[in-house]
Design a protein around this nucleic acid. Structure first.
Length: 376
DNA sequence: TCTGGGGTCCTAGGACCC
DNA sequence: TCTGGGGTCCTAGGACCC
């Protein structure tokens, strides 16, 4: 039982709960924009994503009417059609979504200078220095909802809590168009009846492990000793245990700063099976072009290059290589990718389903360094 | 049943150094 | 013949999120 000795020291003095965080999530964002643009879609089970002609691909977002059939994002289109044969499908106009998103994020900016955009349809606001208590935060949230609806005719769900994770969980419990406040002293009580899968990071695999140990709700986890939580479910188990027992494991101070990007990648699934290695080469060249251009725009150099390859049977491999110094060169990426690809050269090109290229180990370069690298 | 794409984070093993 | 231990970096795979 050596593992018992490795249980991290658990102090009850975690971070204090003196922040007030608001989380906003636009309701069925892509689908809602499509419905707004085309009122004939109102009330229909609608999915955005996939290819309506070939019925291939996956659901990106779906309307609440579609969700009633059990459809959810990430599901294959063919499965969604089985659940709802009368499903309406649209491909989606991602440029439009991103424009709408930008306008909404600009509205949010007026409510707090400390803000983190977490995706197209979600953002966090730090209201700690903006409001004096939760009641005032709630009023502000209602104003924000009205503001967004007035200018974009879209609804959102909002959670207000002492940290980001609880604000997000709060908003998830009342959708669409909800507003949930989780006060510091009510955390354990609020979480107790909720399914363990409400916690971000607990997906299919983890929830099965919890279920196999008779834990289905947050309350079920909260009543076991924390040592057991660690032994059975590891580091994340302990972290989750702390959360469901009302401890604040999140340091709100430093986590609000926008994080540096860690990697840039592009991967593509072949729409038609590749005929020869030339087809593969063309796809790789185009991906390298995209990611290196992105890196240049962001003034980033990179050191690690990763190739991802998936075969028709869905077996997937990644191979990576780190250079001795940071570079920004398409030629070098190409050379490394070719080297990494050697291992798979005994396969037939048509067996390949997907190819991806990723650059990571990024560093920001200054203008001085930039002029320097131009000589090489 | 048929499974997109862009990301982050975690784990685990091995190499290597002191 | 039996062989430490801690730290760091690299690589591969996988869970998860939107």
């Amino acid at each position: 039982m050596a593992i018992v000795n490795q249980i991290p020291y658990f102090s009850e003095k975690e971070h204090s709960f003196d922040s007030i965080i608001l989380y906003m999530d636009l309701d069925a964002f892509f689908a809602a924009v499509e419905i707004r643009e085309n009122p004939s879609l109102v009330g229909l089970p609608l999915v955005v994503g996939g290819n309506p002609n070939t019925k291939q691909g996956v659901v990106s977002t779906c309307s609440y009417e579609a969700r009633e059939f059990g459809i959810h994002s990430g599901m294959s289109i063919s499965q969604a059609l089985k659940l709802c044969p009368n499903l309406t499908m649209v491909r989606g106009s991602f440029r439009l979504y991103s424009e709408v998103s930008k306008r909404i994020m600009n509205i949010l900016k007026h409510y707090s200078p400390i803000m983190r955009v977490a995706g197209n349809d979600e953002a966090y606001l730090d209201l700690t220095d903006v409001v004096s208590d939760y009641e005032e935060a709630k009023q502000l949230a209602n104003e924000l909802k009205d503001d967004i609806y007035a200018s974009e005719k879209l609804t959102c769900s909002i959670g207000i809590a002492p940290n980001k994770i609880l604000a997000k969980i709060g908003s998830d419990t009342d959708k669409p168009n909800g507003l949930v406040v989780v006060r510091p002293l009510k955390i354990a009580e609020f979480l107790s009846p909720l399914k363990i899968t409400i916690i971000p990071g607990i997906g299919k695999k983890s929830s099965k492990i919890f279920h196999d140990n008779n834990i289905t709700t947050c309350g079920d986890l909260s009543i076991i000793p924390y040592q057991l939580a660690y032994q059975k479910f590891g580091k994340t188990g302990l972290k989750t245990w702390k959360l469901v027992n009302g401890y604040n494991t999140e340091n709100t101070d430093d986590k609000f700063n926008s994080r540096e990007i860690k990697s840039i990648s592009e991967e593509r699934t072949f729409f038609n099976r590749p005929k020869d290695w030339k087809d593969i080469d063309v796809l790789i060249d185009s991906s390298i072009e995209t990611i290196v251009t992105k890196a240049k725009k962001k003034n980033m150099n990179f050191r690690t290059i990763t190739l991802k390859i998936r075969f028709q049977d869905f077996e997937t491999f990644t191979r990576s290589h780190s250079l001795s110094c940071h570079v920004i060169s398409k030629k070098q990426v190409k050379e490394v990718v070719n080297m990494l690809l050697e291992e798979f050269k005994d396969k037939k090109p048509f067996q390949i389903r997907l190819l991806g290229v990723k650059i990571s180990n990024l560093i920001k370069i200054t203008d001085n360094q930039k002029t320097l690298t131009q000589f090489f």
